[in-house]
Design a protein around this nucleic acid. Structure first.
Length: 540
RNA sequence: GCGCCCGUAGCUCAGUGGAUAGAGCGUUGGGUUCCGGACCCAAAGGUCGCAGGUUCGAAUCCUGUCGGGCGCGCCA
């Protein structure tokens, strides 16, 4: 625009540059900043500050292109243009939070929402979930929540094997204990196996005269379903609820694996060698080809993957996300390659690999083996540190990061954990609002002036940022930004509380406006915590 | 050997190419006449593993290198 009215010489041509608009780190730099002029400097052949001055002059109040939402546009540093919101812009944001608290910050899906399938945990039911499964459970659920907040439709899915050798093995271990024998060397040794041995009902036992093999399968099927139900209950206490529990066996029984293989064969990417059936994964950049059907006629786990991808897409999902441990990174390429070979969009098949959690107790790493029965269950962990603290811990760290989790430290610091800091701010506000009701004060509908400079404006500026935080989190598929923001908002509130009196019968007008501001803050804190699956208590 | 992930304050971690690299914990010092002191204010603490490169600008992108983790089955 500056070019078209002649303020900038010799540049009526169209230029195409990528421009960033962002939140400055320092409040001194206003509410928004753009590097527009820095990016235009090269194509226009002009000094960045010259361009910036010309543009800023046309964005401020009273200018032809000025907005009622922009208080000022100033040039700073090498050529940044810093914008400052007007009170009206801030009040519009507060008003939105107060008018529709439930949807405040949630991104409305324009048109048809993208359907996403998120598969996570997927631990086979041969033992209770351990702290080793915590990462996947929380990372998966947090991802789902952030996608939902971003306007997408999410299906949470748990995949497990109810018919593999592990099940027979489990059954053999249960039967051994029930009959007073030693658990086989390669069997399962946890206390839960003994519990199952005591509880197994007659119906789950094979009829007299059955082979040991049949007896083990029968007991194993019963035991694994008990364990699966226990896993579902454990996840429930974490606030993680799955929409679909899918078995590997069903993929074979319903013909999905077979159809997937035919699909691959039809595309010419299968060949036989050494009596086995191979997928030519190397055609897609993998380091080696992969066996689909073993020479003994048994399909591989990879074959099930093929069937599962096909089955998932048949349900109409636009996007598939797998949450896997970092040790599975070697299988990412082959599954995505196979999806492509079967004619699906490779970009629609996404794997998120979680980093390792090194659990530590009093400085000593907690090592675990499910088979040896030497492990800490998820239930035990949660009973020690609480769901809210655990959720916050994982939400505030990148999913792919290797992290340390000191259980004793988490317990010891629980009262100083950032999650309680944020919850405390919420409880404090709830208390203030109760107080206001007691003295007959209510939120003002006219916010006029509440967002002016001073403690009120500083708080309002943080509150109105919330929708952008959610949008960024959904786009990045990460939650760290939400925890950081929630902490910032709590800090802003505590500072406001120090400097401003909310409930003041002597000044009902200011009180009314501040009650509205504080209520908007409470709604925002509650929504941010809710987005992470963390409670927002009215007292604590 | 090849491949992938990770190296940021004493500790645990944020930081989608931007301005003076942040938070919590820990350390040091200070703050209650008033709506919740699980709070607030201040200070100390950094070669962003190292070395090059790309550019107006790099913790961020590229290359190399060191350190840690993981993976390289007709296992799941």
């Amino acid at each position: 625009m500056a070019a078209s009215d002649g303020a900038l010489p010799g540049s009526s041509a169209t230029v195409d540059v990528a421009v960033d608009v962002e939140r400055p780190a320092s409040p001194d730099h206003g509410d928004l900043a753009t590097n527009l002029a820095l990016r235009l400097a090269r194509p226009l052949g002009l000094a960045p500050r010259v361009i910036a001055e010309a543009i800023a002059a046309r964005m401020g109040p009273g200018s032809s292109s000025g907005s009622t939402l922009i208080e000022s546009a100033t040039v700073a540093g090498p050529g940044f243009i810093n914008l400052r919101f007007t009170d009206a812009a801030l009040e519009r944001g507060l008003g939105a939070a107060l008018a529709a608290p439930m949807s405040w910050g949630r991104v409305a899906s324009g048109g048809r929402a993208r359907h996403v399938n998120v598969e996570f945990v997927s631990a086979n039911p041969t033992g209770p979930l351990t702290i080793g499964n915590a990462r996947g459970a929380f990372a998966g659920d947090l991802l789902c929540r952030v996608l939902e907040a971003g306007g997408q439709q999410v299906t949470r899915e748990y995949y497990f094997n109810d018919s593999g050798a592990q099940v027979r093995n489990l059954g053999a271990s249960v039967l051994a204990l029930r009959e007073g024998r030693e658990v086989p060397e390669d069997g399962y040794h946890g206390d839960y196996v003994a519990d199952l041995a005591r509880a197994i009902p007659a119906e789950a036992l094979a009829p007299a005269g059955a082979t040991d093999e049949d007896a083990a399968w029968s007991a194993g099927r019963w035991a694994s379903e008990q364990i699966r139900a226990g896993i579902e209950a454990s996840l429930g206490t974490l606030g993680v609820h799955f929409d679909v529990w899918k078995t590997e066996g069903s993929l074979h029984a319903e013909g999905w694996v077979e159809r997937a293989i035919e699909r691959l064969r039809g595309s010419g990417h299968l060949y036989e060698q050494d009596g086995a059936l191979w997928f030519r994964s190397t055609s897609f950049g993998d380091d080696k080809d992969r066996v689909v059907i073993r020479s003994n006629g048994e399909p591989t786990y990879f074959a099930s993957d093929l069937g599962y991808v096909t089955e998932k897409f048949s349900r109409g999902f636009d996007h598939l996300i797998y949450i896997w441990g970092a040790d599975h990174h070697g299988t990412v390429a082959r599954v995505r390659n196979a999806a492509e070979a079967m004619g699906f969009d490779k970009a629609a098949v996404e794997m998120i690999l979680t980093g390792w959690v090194r659990f530590v107790r009093d400085g000593v790493e907690v090592s675990m083996s499910k088979r040896a029965g030497n492990f800490v269950t998820l239930d035990e962990l949660l009973s020690e540190i609480g769901v809210d603290a655990a959720r916050w811990f994982f939400a505030s760290r990148g999913a792919n990061m290797n992290i340390d989790f000191d259980i004793e430290l988490a317990k010891k610091q629980s009262s100083e954990n950032p999650v309680y800091y944020v919850q405390y701010a919420h409880a404090r506000i709830a208390s203030i609002l109760r107080k206001a009701r007691e003295v007959g004060l209510a939120a003002a509908t006219d916010l006029g002036g509440v967002a002016a400079d001073g403690p009120d404006g500083a708080l309002a500026r943080v509150v109105v940022r919330y929708p952008e935080v959610v949008e960024d989190a959904a786009a990045a598929q990460e939650t760290q930004g939400v925890t950081t923001y929630a902490t910032d908002l709590a800090t802003a509130f505590h500072a406001f509380y120090r400097d401003a009196k909310v409930v003041d019968a002597a000044d009902p007008v200011t009180s009314g406006r501040r009650i509205a501001l504080v209520e908007a803050t409470r709604v925002t804190l509650a929504n941010a915590l809710g987005l992470l699956g963390i409670s927002a208590p009215d007292s604590m």
